[in-house]
């Protein structure tokens, strides 16, 4: 006897946690789209943002001031990364840039924990995590809140890309760096802006994930959850990141509940990768990725 109600509950839970994956994935997409870098340090930025915010609040700084200060720090970080890491590596292969972001993630993780300590911090955003019932299906209030935040953020970015001059510059750089340079766009400024935007996404995602998991080192491992989402959705598509996140979230939870017991459980760690790979074997450019002959 198949329990539909339970199935839907698992599905909704999966979709909502998928939104959280999308949130992390969007940070990657922003940077990949405009600079062709797979930014492995996104997880470290997330940890850094959440840890900074929590530590400020714990030291008695009011909530909004703390968020503002963290935002300023993330902006400074974005500008610094462009200055110190990206600018000297212009024209290097994308793989070299990727490895540089691996190094960067070590630096940021180390610095965050050196600065604020390695203990686990609780983070309370003031949203009670009491599940409520819709038609017999239990839905987590917190997950719903996170989904709403993610939705707002995505809409904001979509509008920003579509209607502002900076957004237009972002799209131009994403389209063709040389052409963008030729018409007088300042690449370095665009990159700094993009890394700043990614920092803002990291702050939001860090707060939401931090409230869920506690703010600690393992927060930076959230990247590993976002990577299959990116593979599935395509590295350069915001829409792909969202749909991919939802799919991965749902599949992961369903697999864990229905397939997991057959294999001894704990398959969450790799189920997403297997799904993403199986999909890629059929469609190498992902769901919404640009169809190029060669993706390097």
């Amino acid at each position: 006897m198949f329990d539909y109600q339970f199935f839907i509950e698992v599905l909704v839970g999966g979709l909502l946690s998928g939104v959280m994956y999308s949130l992390v994935a969007i940070g990657f997409v922003l940077i990949y789209k405009t600079s062709g870098v797979l930014n492995f340090a996104q997880g470290a930025m997330l940890l850094f943002a959440a840890l900074t915010f929590v530590s400020l609040v714990e030291r008695g700084v009011p909530f909004w001031l703390g968020a503002g200060v963290t935002l300023v720090i993330m902006v400074a970080l974005g500008v610094a990364v462009e200055r110190v890491v990206l600018r000297p590596l212009v024209n290097q292969s994308p793989m070299a840039l990727f490895m540089a972001t691996l190094g960067l993630s070590y630096v940021i993780e180390g610095a965050a924990q050196l600065l604020w300590g390695t203990q686990v911090h609780g983070l309370d955003l003031g949203i009670k995590d009491i599940p409520f019932e819709v038609g017999g299906v239990l839905i987590s209030q917190f997950d719903l809140f996170a989904a709403a935040i993610a939705g707002t953020l995505v809409t904001a970015f979509a509008l920003f890309f579509r209607y502002t001059r900076t957004g237009l510059a972002f799209r131009a750089v994403a389209d063709d760096q040389f052409a963008a340079l030729a018409v007088g766009l300042r690449l370095s400024r665009v990159w700094a802006a993009v890394w700043t935007a990614a920092g803002v996404v990291a702050l939001v995602a860090g707060l939401l994930w931090g409230a869920r998991l506690g703010v600690q080192f393992s927060l930076s491992l959230v990247v590993l959850k976002a990577l299959p989402v990116l593979v599935l959705g395509g590295f350069d598509s915001v829409a792909g990141a969202i749909v991919g996140g939802l799919l991965i979230g749902a599949i992961e939870k369903l697999a864990e509940v229905y397939v997991g017991p057959l294999l001894g459980g704990g398959i969450e760690a790799w189920a997403a990768y297997v799904v993403a790979l199986a999909f890629l074997l059929l469609r190498p450019s992902g769901l919404f990725g640009q169809k190029l002959v060669e993706r390097v």
């Binding site: 797979l38 994308p94 793989m95 990727f98 590993l224 990577l227 299959p228 990116l230 593979v231 590295f235 294999l263 001894g264 459980g265 704990g266 398959i267 760690a269 790799w270 990768y273 297997v274 993403a276 790979l277 890629l280 074997l281 190498p284 060669e294 993706r295 390097v296």
Partner: peptide, 25 residues
Amino acid sequence: RLRGFYLAVSTLAAQFFVQWALTKF
């Protein structure tokens, strides 16, 4: 089928799968 970053990410599958299998079985 995959190159570059897509391949790099897909090699992570080995990492997680092997660690899981060795712990589980």
